[in-house]
Structures are given as C-alpha cells and as structure tokens.
Design a protein around this nucleic acid. Structure first.
Lengths: 172, 172
DNA sequence: GCATATATGTCAACATCACTGACGTATTTT
DNA sequence: AAAATACGTCAGTGATGTTGACATATATGC
C-alpha cells in the first residue's frame, strides 16, 4: 500500500536512522556469506561459484544470458566460473530446443547436493531471524528489501528470471 | 513484541520463503553497492576504501584493531587500503594519547566530503525504501536484519565499536 | 537466400581485494 | 627484564572482476 501522499512524511528520517540501515546491510551480508565462503574454500571454489550454482538451481534450464542479467558481471567472468563448475561436474549444459544457440544450464546430482549444503546455513540463519522477529516483521523486511532493489528487478525477485534486455549481447 | 512462545511456531517457513530471503539479500546488496562502486572507480578507489572511509567517519578516532574487527579482513589487506587513503589525503592518523601504540584514524575534510558523496546515494535509496514501506515495515526490517547478524556483533551495530577480542593480534 | 543480429565462447592483459607466512618496531603490561 | 600487544612491512598467491578483440553457430528480417 502506498502511504498517504501528504508531501510531508510522518516518517522523519534522521541521519542516524539511515546509517543504521547502511550498517545493517553491511553486517548482515558479511555474516550471511561467511559460512558458505568457508565451505567453498575447502573444495577450491569461491563465492562466485556459489552464486552461479544458486541461481542455476533456482531456475533450472536458465540460459547464460539470463544468468548474466542476474549476476551483472561480464560474460568473461561468468565463463570462467561456469567452465569450472561444468568441468568439476556440478553443472550440465545442453543446447536449447527452441533456440539452439543457447546453453541451458542445470545442476547435476552433485551440483544439487552442493547447493543444498551451501544454502543450508543461510536458510537456517534466515529461518532463525524470521522466527525471532515474527511474521509481521518478516513482511516489513520484505517490503523494505524490495524497495532497496532496482525497480526493474523487483518483479524478477522470486519470480521468473527476466529475459536479458534487447541489445544486452553487444552492450558491455 | 516477541511472538508467543508456543514451541511450535505459527510461522511456517516454506523453502520458497527462505529462498526469497536469500535472494532479497543478494539483489539488495548488489544494487546497494553498485552506484558508490561506480563513483569510486572514477577516482581510482574501490569498495574496500568505501568501507574503511565509512567506518572511520562513523567512529572518529577508531583505531586499527577496532576497524579490523568490524571489517573482518587481514591487517595486510587493511594496511594497503588505509595506506592509500592516507597518502591521498582522505584519512589522517595520529597516535593514541592513552596508548601510544595505537593509530587513531579520522577523516580529513576531503575524506568527509568523499564519504558524504559516496553515502548519499545509499542514504537516498534507504530513505526511499523506508518511506515507501512505512514505519512499521522499517521496524520489522531492523528486527530481521539484526537477527541475521552474528550474535556477538548485534550490540555493536549502531553503537560503539567493540574492542577487538583478546588475542586478536596473534590470531589470524 | 543473404545480410545482419544474437547467443555464446575464447584469448590476452590487467586491477582489486583478499589471503598466507615471516618478521620488525614501538609501547605497554606483568 | 620478559612477554604481550598494536601496528606495520615484505613477499608471494589466488579469486573475481574488468576491457578489448575476435570467432562460431544459429536465428531473423527483408
């Protein structure tokens, strides 16, 4: 629900309030990624691999362009990461049926197992925070977080991955 | 308000709910850092410099050990970043008065200006998200985010920086 | 059907930010 | 006086990102 358009907002935002927001994001992200990072390190992978595995698991059959649009990195960066994951047997590729230029990505059994293992800690952490804060707070959390995300991607979160923008291939 | 302690929680957490949380963190952090990153890039600095500048601005007179405890990186990494910031005139150091081994860090005029410029976009983004979501949602956001942070650091967020753990100097 | 655009990949070079390991100096604490 | 602490440095390495140029296969528009 959009708030009343009073022009003046009853939500008076002090510098301190905004700083707290900045810091919450920093600390939460720092701690949210620490555990998976440690686990990845043991098998010679990094956070970038986790992100790829996560989103391939999230959208089975996703193609490279869509994944690029989510991660917002260059194809050269993704290519290295994806190549390693394919070579190590975590991700399988196969050409698209409708457009055979595409490579549709999927997790292998091994990849799915790794994804579960990596996300387990994150899920636990989120579940604990949700339970401690209560359903009402969770709803507020979602609303604020969505508001922090670039508008063009809000629909994408927890929906279908957006098709890459036209011209995305040429644009860098 | 803490939820009723029923043992069984009325907050039934589906896999989808947890995934949404994971993704909100990913997208929000991605978009939250993108703009400052671009600005930093123009003056030959990176995200690590932003973090250092931010927390030195947040806690004027903070010493190196405290900053290390916040950032959770090695002193060698921080040393490089801090050295660059000092050389380029964004941060000033001076020995502590009570313990002269310490280097107390402060932003110079120039550093404070940069900090404001960098954080401006982030503050705007947070302010917009807060306003759109409403005060109630903001409170929920804070509760959940705090729950995501390592327990030992919850008190530190938006308070005084914790003293580094005893033994921190030797531990790596 | 031919020209062009798209999806993807590759080679090469480079920057940033992190890490490990080993040591060194000044100062404080015991 | 010895030990611990705060901080720094030198040296090497690895992960992740970047730019730029070019290659291949497939689709699409006229």
């Amino acid at each position: 629900m959009p708030e009343l358009r009073t022009g003046l907002h009853h939500l008076y935002l002090r510098d301190e309030d905004l700083r707290l927001g900045i810091e919450l994001l920093f600390y939460a992200y720092r701690d949210f990624t620490a555990e998976p990072d440690r686990m990845l390190d043991e098998i010679g992978l990094g956070r970038a691999h986790h992100r790829a595995i996560y989103f391939v698991g999230r959208y089975p059959g996703i193609n490279v362009g869509e994944l690029l649009a989510i991660l917002r990195i260059t194809k050269q960066s993704l290519s290295r990461v994806l190549g390693e994951l394919v070579r190590k047997g975590y991700i399988a590729q196969r050409p698209g049926t409708v457009d055979r230029r595409q490579r549709r990505l999927e997790l292998t059994e091994q990849g799915a197992a790794l994804e579960r293992k990596l996300s387990e800690n994150q899920r636990r952490r989120i579940a604990a925070a949700y339970r401690a804060a209560g359903p009402n707070a969770v709803e507020g959390f979602r609303r604020v977080m969505l508001g922090l995300i670039d508008e063009r991607d809000r629909g994408k979160v927890a929906g279908e991955p957006a098709k890459p923008q036209p011209g995305a291939a040429t644009r860098r």
